[in-house]
Computed example of a mutant assay.
Amino acid sequence: MGKQLSWCTQSMMQIKKMDERFPKPLSQSSFCPKALYCAGNQDLFRQKAVAIIGTRNMTAYGKQATRHFVRQAVEQGWCVVSGLAVGVDQCVHESTLEFGGKTIAVVAGGLSQITPQSNEFLARNILKQGGLVCAEYDDAVPTEKWRYLQRNRIIAGMCSAVIVVEAGFPSGTFSTVNWALQLGRDAFVISGPYFSPYAEGTKILINNGAMLITSLKDVHDELRMPYICIKRDEKTTEFETKMLETMRQFPTGARVDEVVALGSFDRSTCLSALFDLEMRGIVVKNGAKYMIAV
């Protein structure tokens, strides 16, 4: 039995590199830690895993994109990995749990020190719903900035692919992508609003070898994995319903500014909703115009 953790009822267990429970993809890396300290469902180390990461300063658009890709990942049977930081990481873990999936959180310091402390509640929920929280260090090691960069090699190493939602410049996300490429993993980025400061980093990542994607199917195609198309009974939010009603005033399609002006919508919120509706197949984009799918 391992040491009791202060923030949850479970005990911390050490899994050494040579242990059969240790994540195999990570164990084959030359940058592999000697051991991992874990709380939760260690069987997740044997599942296919994808990392979804991004900025701490997540925008409304970033939240929509994160939830969209997490939902697809859960539907395709992926274990979703992230770093339990605020922003995109937090949204990744919360969305995975909401959609009924399993998630692994890799923290930068010792396992007894969840940073930020406000995410201890989220860490407990991850464990309650069959997830896992792990770290390279035991409970005595404090969280320091340089350990976040070192932690990123573990996130990249245990996953088949890394997906970046939003990244400014400079960004710690670059570290995870660089580790992924060094380890022979595929790295992907989601396109963001062109003038957003949190799209600057993703543009640079594309130039450095990451691949632009619009759907998780793009990831499956690159990994040569089958992708199961899932039909949903789509429900729209109150805002989405109002926006769709506005779009019906434009039978041949509407530009974003036309929808914003007629409906008196916030432009960034409108863009985020259009992105999500397009990904769900409710609207289609034709050039600069959006139309409701028939």
Rank of each mutant, 00 (worst) to 15 (best):
V133E: 10
P197K: 02
K63D: 10
K128P: 00
Q4K: 12
R232Y: 14
K203L: 09
G131P: 00
N207D: 14
I204D: 10
F250Q: 09
K203R: 13
T9G: 11
R67T: 13
D257V: 10
N178K: 12
Q42Y: 07
A156G: 05
A51P: 06
R46S: 14
S11N: 10
E222W: 03
T66A: 09
L5F: 01
D276K: 15
Q76W: 04
A293K: 15
V219W: 07
Q72K: 09
G201Q: 06
D19T: 00
P142I: 04
V106Q: 04
F99Q: 12
E200W: 00
I154C: 05
R151A: 02
T66G: 07
F265T: 01
S27L: 01
P251D: 01
A254L: 01
Q4T: 08
A288M: 12
T202C: 14
I282H: 08
M225T: 13
I154Q: 05
A140C: 10
Q182M: 10
Q182H: 13
L277W: 12
G192H: 06
V189T: 06
I126E: 07
K217V: 10
R232E: 14
A73W: 00
E94L: 15
S160R: 12
N125L: 13
E144M: 08
L216H: 04
Y37I: 11
I104A: 06
P33V: 03
K145F: 01
L205T: 05
E98K: 15
C38V: 14
T269A: 15
G131E: 05
Q182K: 13
C229I: 14
L5Y: 06
S175N: 14
R147P: 07
M58H: 01
W7G: 00
I155N: 10
Q28N: 13
I213Y: 04
P142L: 04
R267L: 15
S118N: 13
F121T: 15
Q64V: 02
Q129V: 03
N178Q: 12
V88K: 03
S11K: 07
Q76M: 04
I53K: 01
H220P: 07
G101K: 00
V50H: 08
A140K: 12
A254Q: 00
A167K: 07
R147Y: 09
R267N: 15
Q4G: 09
V294Y: 08
P25W: 08
P193F: 00
E20N: 14
D276I: 13
N152P: 04
T143S: 13
A140T: 14
I230Q: 11
D221F: 02
R232K: 15
S118L: 09
N207G: 13
S196H: 05
G109M: 11
D233W: 08
D257T: 11
V164E: 02
Q117P: 10
Q64G: 04
R71C: 09
A187F: 04
E75L: 14
N57C: 06
N152L: 01
V260M: 01
L26F: 05
R255Y: 02
T202W: 11
G54I: 05
T214M: 09
C79H: 07
R248Q: 14
I163F: 11
R248E: 15
L244A: 06
V259N: 11
R21T: 01
M279G: 15
I230M: 02
F188G: 05
T237W: 06
T103I: 03
A180C: 07
A39D: 07
A293E: 13
P170C: 03
V74K: 00
G253T: 05
E136N: 10
F250G: 01
G62Q: 03
T176D: 09
I53W: 00
F45G: 02
E238S: 15
A85Y: 02
L223W: 10
